[in-house]
């Protein structure tokens, strides 16, 4: 555990809670892509199956349980509790174009050809592109609420901090996981355009427009 890893995890946690609270307090999921949230629920489910097979630390177990719980709670709020406010017409990204190639790639390029490891790899690849339906939705409607931009910023910051964590771990522990690193770089790059807009526009104008 180093400072980048910890702040990355906390940034990730902040993003998840910001979104959950935003939907809960406003009683609305307008502007939020339910598809991205389903993808994140799939990401956490397939990645944290090791909760059943190995124990790493209390911190690790607690965070995994919180992430999974919040992901399903978010999906529940969007598709059940506040379904009437869900803007399905604008959430039109074709997720099969992500899930199918990512599934194929995880079977082809993985650390070990075993069910759990393939599912872990699938979750890493899927996470790197899971935000695309949300970004697509924002580009389609041309705007996002300020709180939604805070969510996206924390979510992007998390993977960027993980990149620094991997640099740290490579130098000080000789550790590197090529699959996680390449997917993490892809994931971070997808947020770059958003980061730029967030810093130059998001802080000063609202509602936020692309």
């Amino acid at each position: 555990m180093n400072v980048f890893r910890l702040t990355g995890d906390l940034s990730h946690l902040a993003a998840i809670i910001i979104l959950l609270l935003k939907i809960w307090k406003s009683r609305s999921c307008a502007g939020i892509s339910g598809k991205s949230q389903i993808l994140f629920a799939i990401v956490f489910t397939t990645r944290y199956l090791d909760l059943l097979t190995s124990f790493i630390s209390l911190y690790n177990t607690c965070m995994k349980v919180i992430y999974i719980g919040c992901a399903y709670a978010t999906v529940y709020l969007i598709y059940a509790k506040f379904r009437a406010t869900y803007d399905g017409n604008h959430d039109s990204f074709r997720v099969e174009f992500l899930v199918v190639p990512v599934g194929g790639l995880s079977v082809l390029i993985n650390h070990d050809f075993s069910p759990l490891e393939i599912l872990w790899t699938f979750s890493i690849y899927l996470e790197s592109v899971a935000i695309l339906p949300q970004l697509f939705m924002i580009s389609k409607t041309g705007e996002a609420e300020t709180i939604t931009t805070h969510y996206l910023f924390c979510l992007g910051l998390y993977r960027a901090l993980y990149l620094f964590n991997w640099i740290w771990r490579f130098y000080f522990e000789g550790f590197f996981d090529m699959i996680a690193i390449v997917a993490g770089v892809v994931q971070t790059v997808l947020y770059c355009d958003f980061f730029y807009l967030y810093v130059t526009k998001g802080w000063f104008s609202r509602p936020y427009r692309l």
């Binding site: 990645r47 690790n60 965070m63 650390h111 075993s114 490891e117 964590n165 996981d177 996680a180």
Partner: peptide, 10 residues
């Protein structure tokens, strides 16, 4: 042999 990869990150 079975390779068990442990992933310690979230």
């Amino acid at each position: 042999g079975e390779v068990l990869t442990q992933h310690d990150e979230l």
